[in-house]
């Protein structure tokens, strides 16, 4: 368990100049899992669902109605993004709890590591979330209205605009560090508890981590959704 508490992801090798870290490997695996599951679930879509299709429908329906309840007309655009954030983060969080993570080593480094215990991954998602948020704001408001959100002639509102710009950056930081902190802390707790006594004792913490994994995925997705909705809404005239 000497690898449990390291901030940096371990580099397994290089593809040209791209370092293949264990977290990147796991995120590819998670993508593969999601892809395979969705292809199987929708292999032959039947009007009377069964098995995996039933499950996929339940999940999608839940997600869609949640997004629809908040974003109304823009659901068609926002839903795929938000749902993908949610499904991806949920999958990698839960995959990180599987046995073999942190224990199987490759050239002295752990082969698998929970994706979100690497700030690269969470920051990547947070940056993307912020970029998409602003992209949709420009798309729905037009470039002029978008800029007017931040700049105003009134000195008070100019100051507010500056604060808002700062808050946009804090959003990125909070999104990325929240996810990273929760999952990394979970990893640390699990490896510590497993180090103390590996049988039965870590079980409650695993349950806890299952919940945390779900909650963090939901929080990230919902915050992204809310930011998108807020920013792409027309600014009230002052």
């Amino acid at each position: 368990m000497e690898h449990g508490i390291v901030l940096k992801p371990e580099i397994l090798g290089y593809f040209k100049s791209l370092p293949i870290t264990n977290t990147l490997l796991v995120s590819w695996m998670a993508m593969a899992v999601l892809t395979i599951v969705s292809i199987i679930a929708t292999w032959r879509v039947k009007i009377i669902p069964s098995g995996l299709q039933n499950f996929a429908e339940a999940v999608i329906d839940w997600g869609y109605s949640t997004v629809e309840g908040l974003s109304g007309k823009k659901t068609k655009v926002f839903f795929p993004l938000v749902m993908t954030f949610f499904l991806f983060i949920l999958t990698v969080n839960w995959m990180g709890l599987l046995p073999g993570f942190g224990t199987i080593t490759y050239k002295g480094e752990p082969l698998f590591r929970s994706v979100n215990s690497d700030l690269n991954m969470t920051l990547g998602l947070a940056l993307l979330s912020a970029f998409l948020t602003h992209f949709f704001a420009v798309k729905y408001l037009g470039i002029k209205n978008y800029l007017l959100k931040w700049v105003a002639l009134n000195p008070i509102f100019l100051f507010v605009g500056i604060l808002e710009i700062i808050s946009e950056f804090t959003k990125i930081v909070s999104l990325s560090f929240r996810l990273f902190g929760n999952i990394f802390a979970g990893e640390v707790v699990l490896s510590t508890v497993s180090g103390i006594f590996a049988f039965v004792v870590p079980l409650p913490f695993y349950f806890l981590e299952i919940i945390v994994g779900f909650v963090q995925a939901a929080v990230f997705a919902m915050l992204t959704l809310v930011f998108m909705i807020l920013l792409s809404e027309k600014h009230e005239a002052h």
């Binding site: 791209l18 990147l24 995120s27 993908t84 690269n120 991954m121 940056l127 993307l128």
Partner: peptide, 10 residues
Amino acid sequence: LLLAAQVVNF
């Protein structure tokens, strides 16, 4: 590069 990789992944 890793950030970019993650964005591409997404």
